[in-house]
């Protein structure tokens, strides 16, 4: 029962995070989702991941959000969706139902736990993953630095560079069209 109520709470938080008009509030709801999921993970027996999820998902990422929102500024206006709501709901529902259909026959009994501990698996069997994570973090840092770098001179040139690219396809289209016209005549 505890598990079900935890799940319901997590789903509620997720829906609130999507619905919340204020970004800061949405970020807080997200932290809530993260915390509840961490508890669920703990209950599943994944103690280490639960701790990491709680600290990273609920802690670090929330701080990042707050930081980013304070930099970008709050926008509270509720924008109407571009995609028609029924289409969006239909797509999502269909995907989820199909996935559920695939998960349906999963009630076979859990296999016996293997004895190897988490650290052994991470550092010995999945060593390549650990390496990939390090590379990923570096890439992320570099990406952020690149994006946040001050680039005043680039702004204008990039705006100008859009101009010819805009016109080119139109000219080509015009030529094709005119040659077709000539042929018709």
């Amino acid at each position: 029962m505890l598990q079900v109520s935890l799940l319901i709470a997590a789903v509620f938080c997720a829906i609130q995070a999507i619905r919340a008009p204020r970004l800061l509030v949405a970020a807080i709801w997200l932290a809530g989702v993260s915390a509840l999921v961490a508890v669920l993970l703990y209950l599943l027996g994944a103690h280490e991941v639960a701790v990491i999820e709680l600290s990273v998902g609920a802690g670090l990422v929330t701080v990042l959000f707050v930081f980013a929102i304070s930099l970008a500024g709050e926008e509270t206006t509720r924008l109407p969706a571009i995609i028609p709501r029924p289409l969006a709901i239909g797509l999502v529902a269909a995907s989820v139902l199909l996935l559920a259909w695939m998960l349906a026959p999963t009630d076979n009994p859990p296999a016996a736990d293997d004895e190897s501990s988490f650290t052994v698996v991470v550092w010995q069997e999945r060593g390549a993953d650990a390496l990939a994570q390090i590379v990923l973090i570096f890439a992320g840092v570099l990406g952020v630095l690149g994006i946040l770098a001050e680039e005043r001179p680039v702004e204008k040139t990039s705006a100008e560079a859009v101009q010819p690219g805009d016109e080119l396809p139109e000219q080509v289209g015009f030529e094709v069209e005119s040659s077709l016209e000539r042929e018709r005549v």
């Binding site: 571009i82 999502v92 199909l98 695939m102």
Partner: peptide, 19 residues
């Protein structure tokens, strides 16, 4: 959003094929 819709549509097709 439309790009995401395309991705989801593609996912849907893959899922249908798998199922």
């Amino acid at each position: 959003n439309w790009n995401v819709a395309g991705i989801v549509g593609g996912l849907l097709i893959v899922l249908i094929i798998v199922v």
